[in-house]
Amino acid sequence: MTVALATSLGDDALILGQRLAEWCGHAPTLEVDLALANIGLDLLGQAQFFLGAAGAAEGQGRDADTLAYRRREDEFRNCLLVEQPNGDFARTIARQFLFSTWQALLFPDLAQSAAPAIAAIAQKAAKEVAYHARFAAEWVVRLGDGTSESHRRMADGLAWCWRFTDELFMDDTAKFRPEWDSHINATLTQAGLATPKPVRGITGGRHGRHTEHLGHILSALQYLQRVYPDATW
């Protein structure tokens, strides 16, 4: 239970952190560059703690690095949303908005209810995630309520990401859906954006069935440890 939950939370954070790192040096403005890198760094920190907890609970002697660098694609348990390519800036913001809003609801709950090792991380990360959700929501409003071009891109980004949101609310997390919907809709209304039309959700990440993108991410993320096992510097 602890292993499965900590692994999925850790993998979510690791993969999205890696995606955000791709923006480093490429974001539209310096402030946004710093923000995306900072959020990625927070997520990497979460990943380190969650995967560390997963390895400790598993008891096979695997630490966070081993889990991050030495697992195959089908052993990752992140949701499909976080592994999706960055696309344009609006799609990156859409992905962050949908995901961080979910984390911001999930973590305070886990802080109360989860196993102590997970609860401590969730309680800590909840403060950071609140900042992420707010940053993303502000950009959704800015782009949605901006020019016709930024509006169109924001709507496209949301529509593209929407198919991966059902996966966030499977099993134990289904209870967060109504509150998540109301948070998302409040921001979209403020942004002058329509809620994306319902689409058939794509799932599978939590069971190790990923989109083609994860393998490409891992080829970059794991390259060094695969080619030079146990390399240190």
Binding site: E31, V32, L34, A35, L41, D42, Y131, F135
Partner: peptide
């Protein structure tokens, strides 16, 4: 505030 994320995680610009 210019940006909520600054030169280090703990600071805003």
């Amino acid at each position: 505030e210019i940006s909520r994320f600054g030169s280090t995680p703990c600071k805003a610009l």
